[in-house]
Simulated scan of single mutants.
Amino acid sequence: MKKSDNHIKYTADAAAQAVDQALKVLEGKWKLSILFYLFDGKVMRFSDLERAIPEITQKMLTQQLRQLEADGLVGRTSYPEVPPRVEYRLTEWGQALCPTLDSLITWADHRPK
C-alpha cells in the first residue's frame, strides 16, 4: 500500500484483503437488512427492528446488533427507564456505507441475464 496525493494505492493482494475484511464486517444473514432499516439517520428501538424483520429471532437480532456495534457501524443508546428503552442508529462510519451499498445494488441490477 502506498499513499500519494491523499489517495491510497493498493496492490492487487492488498486490495483483495481490504475488500475481504470489509465483507467480513457485513457477513451475517441479517446485518444488511438491519443496516438498510437504519439508513438515512433512522433511530429504531429493538422492538421496532423485530417488527420490521419478522423472520429474525430475538437472539439473532441481539447477536447481529452486537456485532455491528462492535465493528463500529451501529451505535446503541440505553435509557434508564422502566421498562428499559434501547435505541439503535448508524454511526457516522456506518452511514458512510450507504453510497457503497447503493452502488452494489446498481451493479447487481446490471447483471447480464
Rank of each mutant, 00 (worst) to 15 (best):
7 H>C: 11
80 P>A: 14
71 D>M: 08
74 V>A: 02
24 K>P: 01
101 L>A: 02
71 D>K: 08
79 Y>M: 05
82 V>Y: 13
12 A>C: 03
53 I>T: 04
33 S>Q: 13
89 R>S: 14
57 T>F: 00
68 L>F: 00
35 L>T: 00
44 M>F: 13
104 L>V: 06
88 Y>L: 00
93 W>L: 09
100 T>H: 06
32 L>K: 02
4 S>L: 15
70 A>H: 12
92 E>Q: 10
43 V>F: 09
5 D>W: 10
95 Q>M: 09
43 V>I: 15
38 L>S: 02
28 G>M: 00
107 W>S: 05
52 A>G: 09
66 R>T: 08
32 L>E: 04
79 Y>T: 07
76 R>I: 08
5 D>I: 12
80 P>C: 06
47 S>N: 14
42 K>W: 09
39 F>R: 05
8 I>P: 00
34 I>D: 00
89 R>W: 06
111 R>M: 14
22 A>C: 10
81 E>D: 12
49 L>H: 07
96 A>L: 07
109 D>A: 11
36 F>L: 15
1 M>K: 05
40 D>K: 10
103 S>M: 08
86 V>L: 05
16 A>C: 04
100 T>A: 11
94 G>D: 03
13 D>E: 13
64 Q>M: 08
27 E>F: 05
97 L>G: 00
16 A>E: 06
97 L>A: 03
15 A>G: 04
66 R>G: 03
109 D>K: 13
7 H>Y: 07
111 R>S: 13
82 V>W: 12
29 K>Y: 07
50 E>T: 09
88 Y>R: 02
66 R>C: 06
86 V>G: 03
16 A>M: 06
106 T>Q: 11
111 R>Y: 14
34 I>A: 02
68 L>G: 00
78 S>H: 10
102 D>F: 07
